[in-house]
Simulated assay, not measured.
Amino acid sequence: MIVMGIETSCDETAAAIVKDTDKIFSNVILTQIPYHRRFGGVVPEIASRRHLEAINSVIDEAVFKSGFEMSHIDRFAVTVGPGLVGSLIVGIVAARTLGKIYKKPVFGVNHILSHLAVNFLFDEISPPYLGLVASGGHCDLIHAKTHNDFEVLSKTRDDAPGETFDKIAKMLGLPYPGGAEIEKIAKRGNPDSVKFPVPKFKDGSDDFSFSGIKTFVKNRIGETPKDKIPDLLASFQKAVAKIFADRIMNAVKKTNCIRVILAGGVISNNFIVSFLSEECAKNSVQLFWPRPEFCTDNAAMTACRGFLQESSLKLIPQPDLKI
Rank of each mutant, 00 (worst) to 15 (best):
Met4Trp: 11
Ile6Tyr: 05
Cys10Trp: 00
Asp11Lys: 03
Asp22Trp: 09
Lys23Gly: 06
Phe25Asn: 03
Thr31Asp: 02
Thr31Val: 05
Arg37Asn: 15
Gly40Leu: 10
Gly41Asp: 11
Val42Ser: 03
Val43Leu: 04
Glu45Trp: 13
Glu45Leu: 04
Ser48Asp: 06
Leu52His: 05
Glu53Val: 05
Ala54Lys: 07
Gly67Trp: 11
Gly81Cys: 05
Gly86Ile: 00
Ser87Glu: 00
Ile89Trp: 05
Val90Thr: 04
Leu98Asp: 06
Pro105Leu: 06
Phe107Lys: 03
Gly108Leu: 00
Leu113Tyr: 02
Leu116Gly: 12
Ala117Lys: 02
Val118Cys: 08
Ile125Gly: 02
Ser126Glu: 12
Pro128Leu: 01
Ala134Asn: 06
Ser135Val: 07
Gly137Pro: 04
His138Gln: 10
Ile142Arg: 04
His143Tyr: 15
Ala144Asp: 07
His147Lys: 13
Val152Pro: 14
Gly162Asp: 09
Gly162Val: 05
Thr164Tyr: 11
Phe165Ala: 07
Phe165Lys: 02
Phe165Asp: 12
Asp166Met: 03
Lys167Thr: 11
Gly173Trp: 09
Glu183Trp: 10
Glu183Arg: 10
Gly189Val: 08
Asn190Gly: 04
Pro191Lys: 00
Ser193Pro: 15
Ser193Asp: 15
Lys200Cys: 06
Phe201Ile: 11
Lys202Phe: 14
Lys202Ala: 14
Gly204Phe: 09
Asp207His: 07
Ser209Lys: 02
Ser209Ile: 06
Gly212Trp: 13
Ile213Leu: 13
Ile221Cys: 12
Ile221Gln: 13
Glu223Lys: 14
Lys228Leu: 09
Lys228Gly: 03
Ser235Arg: 11
Gln237Cys: 12
Ala241Leu: 07
Ile243Trp: 06
Asp246Lys: 13
Lys254Asn: 13
Asn256Phe: 05
Ala263Arg: 03
Val266His: 03
Val273Glu: 07
Leu276Ser: 11
Ser277Ile: 01
Ala281Met: 08
Pro290Met: 05
Pro290Ala: 06
Thr296His: 00
Ala303Tyr: 10
Arg305Tyr: 13
Glu310Ser: 12
Glu310Asp: 14
Ser311Asn: 15
Lys314Glu: 15
Asp320Lys: 11
Lys322Glu: 14
